[in-house]
């Protein structure tokens, strides 16, 4: 009895499918996709460190496009930074590397870090203790010049020493 019922309904399905073999039948329910907004609480105290650190060692060095090597002008600047650090043994510094907006953001973040590391290595080679230096990168995220021209780009390819 049960078997015959099953057979009959099975037959109906077959007939239904064969009568409309080229038709698609679908059923679905809409996905709610709810979103919650979050506020990031900034713990970036860079501004405070700018103020509290002595300004003797504040300087900026610049780089060529996609380059991380120090130019002769940069070396001049860094010599005076070394002097300032040697004169003020309690002074610690943050080296933040930056890139211009050309090229991809993540590659530029890595490029900014390499620039900061290059400056750090120079300072360490010239006698500054490594534990006085913090390096980080902002990539292309914090330009100081907003133009889309070589003069602006050149200002943005930099390491800020604070």
């Amino acid at each position: 009895m049960i078997f015959s019922k099953f057979n009959i309904s099975f037959l109906f399905i077959i007939i239904f499918l064969s009568s409309c073999s080229s038709m698609n039948v679908t059923e679905e329910t809409v996905y709610s996709g709810d979103v919650k907004t979050v506020q990031a609480s900034s713990t970036d105290n860079e501004d405070i460190s700018y103020d509290s650190q002595a300004i003797f060692a504040n300087a900026t060095v610049y780089f060529d496009f996609d380059k991380t090597n120090l130019t002769s002008k940069s070396l001049q600047t860094l010599k005076s930074v070394v002097d300032a650090l040697n004169d003020n043994s309690k002074l610690n510094i943050v080296l933040s590397g930056h890139a211009d907006e050309r090229g991809t953001r993540e590659y530029n973040l890595a490029l900014g870090q390499r620039r900061a590391d290059t400056v750090s290595q120079y300072l360490i080679l010239n006698g500054v203790e490594s534990n006085r230096i913090i390096t980080k990168s902002y990539g292309e995220e914090r330009p100081i010049a907003n133009g889309q021209d070589e003069a602006s780009y050149a200002k943005n390819r930099r390491v800020q020493i604070n």
Binding site: C20, M23, V25, T26, E27, E28, T29, V30, S32, G33
Partner: peptide, 15 residues
């Protein structure tokens, strides 16, 4: 000259 698809989508409020 034929039907090729018949679909049902169940909605939810405000979507």
């Amino acid at each position: 000259r034929s039907k090729v698809r018949s679909s049902t989508v169940f909605g939810i409020p405000n979507k």
